[in-house]
Amino acid sequence: MVVASVVVPAHDEAASIARTLRALRTGVGPDDLDVVVVCNGCRDATADLAREADPRARVIEIPTPSKREAVRVGNTATDVFPRVHLDADIELTGSALVELVAAVREGGAMAAAPRRAVPRAGCSPWVRWYYDVWEELPHVQSGLFGRGVVVLSEAGQARVEHLAGLMNDDLAMSEAFGPGERRVVPGAVAVVHPPRTVADLVRRRTRVATGNAQATRLGVRRTGSQTRVRTLLSLAVSRPGLAARVPVFVGVYLLASFGARRAVRVGDFDTWQRDESSRTG
């Protein structure tokens, strides 16, 4: 019996797609998951590697390099719920996915996401310091965004259908549900590989800042999900060990905000500022 469908949009993910799909099949039966990988505008071997790593997955290739279109195609390819939206560079085991599905199917949540693990080995010290602060922010701990995985009930999927075009789609999905409707499941863990270099970190955070601005413009983003000065000051006071790291966080935040200005000014919410260092083995 199929317990959930999994939609995986993938653009030039040859370095990570096999790792992602193999993890997904760990701890579940061969027919438990309806996995749909949508390779969009790929110029590498993503599709072939996906088929090799998971022969049971349905691999669809479309010519347009667009996550929005890939998600749309993936959603139309399956009618199974709960629906799992999984980024192609995230490691989530099948057994962890089952816990998330249970939170939606039996726990009453409309949306669920795993606890994130952000391995810092091989990362620049500045990158490590940035994530030391970022992971302690209250809205980062409670929101579904930044985890690379969101599981939706059928009603939850219907609620976010119109938000699929947003650049930060996981933020949009998180903000679409109130605290009583969404759940972070501590027992389920997703491995989110961070950038290894400061340049790639700023590139990734510029993308996030641009998407956040789009969500704010459209009235999707809640005020509670924004990083505020008083929150950072409170962290520095209550967690002295983070005090020296906060300026690093602020520096990256300002650089990313500056980098996002041009895109926001011209309304460019399609250009994908991608980092490659997180995709190395």
Rank of each mutant, 00 (worst) to 15 (best):
R120G: 15
R68Y: 13
R222Y: 00
A260I: 05
T231C: 05
G187I: 00
L86I: 03
E106C: 07
V149N: 12
A14V: 09
A96C: 14
A117S: 15
R51T: 13
L86E: 10
V248F: 02
V38N: 13
G41L: 06
R51M: 09
A14F: 03
D270T: 15
A70W: 08
R120E: 12
L235E: 10
V191I: 15
Q141C: 04
W272N: 11
L242G: 03
R58P: 05
R228Q: 14
A57L: 07
E52T: 11
A164T: 15
L235A: 05
G41H: 08
T64D: 13
V237R: 15
R56Q: 13
N75D: 12
S174P: 07
A70R: 04
D268A: 03
S277P: 10
S16N: 01
L33D: 03
A158S: 09
W134D: 12
A57V: 08
I62P: 11
R105T: 14
T93I: 02
V248A: 00
T223G: 07
H162T: 06
P9N: 08
V7M: 07
V36E: 09
L233D: 07
A260C: 06
A53E: 05
V3C: 07
V84A: 07
V189T: 15
S174E: 03
G94F: 02
A102E: 12
E135P: 00
G259W: 04
D270E: 14
A243D: 02
A47I: 04
A109V: 05
A14C: 05
A53Y: 02
A4I: 05
G241P: 12
D275Q: 03
D48T: 10
A47K: 08
A190E: 08
W126Q: 15
L92K: 03
